[in-house]
Amino acid sequence: MTTYLRNSLTYVWAFLVAISIASWWVGRGQVDNFQVNGIITTTVFLIAAIKARLVIRHFMEVQHGPQWLKLTCDAWLAFVFLWMFGFYWASL
């Protein structure tokens, strides 16, 4: 049991659970009044980007890979989220 508590993946997993709950808590405000809120959606997008980076780095073992792989994954993630973010704000 103590080996799980000493593993860094346990802390990353706990943080992912915490920010998933935070994302749900922030996003649930949109359901009450059925209106699009750019600030709430932007916050949820940023939380999703953080979660994606943590999953790529820690659970897909990119953290131990070469530097070019880390940079490629970060560039791809930035491109995808900026693309989605741009389309979202363009549609408002």
Rank of each mutant, 00 (worst) to 15 (best):
R28F: 04
V36F: 15
F45E: 07
T41G: 06
V26M: 03
V44S: 05
G29N: 08
L77T: 14
V12N: 01
C73R: 11
Q63N: 11
F87A: 09
S91G: 04
L16M: 05
H58L: 05
T10S: 10
A18K: 06
W89Q: 10
I19W: 01
I40R: 11
F15E: 04
V55H: 02
L69Y: 13
V12Q: 00
T2R: 10
L5K: 15
Y11I: 05
Q35T: 15
F81P: 08
F34W: 12
R57E: 11
F85Q: 10
F79P: 03
I50N: 01
A90I: 02
L46V: 11
I50A: 02
L54T: 00
I56W: 02
T43M: 10
V26A: 07
D32R: 08
V80K: 02
I47E: 01
T42Q: 07
V17N: 01
R6Q: 14
F45R: 08
A48L: 12
V36T: 15
F45N: 10
S23L: 03
F85A: 09
N7R: 03
L46W: 04
L77A: 08
L92A: 13
E61Y: 13
V36H: 11
L77E: 05
A52P: 03
T72E: 07
L71D: 09
W68F: 12
F34D: 15
D74W: 10
N37C: 10
M60A: 15
L16P: 01
Q30N: 13
L16H: 02
T42W: 06
L54Q: 04
T72Q: 09
V44F: 06
F45A: 03
W24K: 11
I21D: 11
G29I: 00
Y4P: 00
A49C: 07
S8G: 00
Q63C: 02
A49R: 08
C73F: 14
T41L: 15
V55F: 07
H58R: 10
T43L: 12
V55S: 01
T3F: 11
W25I: 06
A14F: 01
T72S: 13
G86V: 01
Y11H: 11
R53L: 12
L5A: 13
P66Y: 00
M84Q: 14
G27N: 03
A75E: 05
V17R: 00
R53P: 01
V26F: 07
I40N: 05
S23D: 00
W76C: 13
W68P: 04
W24G: 09
A78P: 04
W24P: 02
I39W: 12
V62Q: 05
L46P: 04
P66C: 03
D32P: 00
R57H: 06
F45W: 09
T3Q: 14
M60W: 14
A90D: 09
L9R: 12
P66V: 01
L82A: 13
L16A: 01
N33F: 07
Y4W: 13
A18Y: 06
L9M: 05
R57S: 11
R57T: 10
A52L: 14
G38V: 07
W24T: 15
W25Q: 08
F45V: 08
G65W: 14
A78I: 13
L9I: 02
T10F: 13
L46A: 12
I21T: 15
I19T: 09
T41W: 10
V36C: 12
G27R: 00
A22H: 04
V44G: 08
M60R: 13
I39H: 05
A48F: 08
L54R: 01
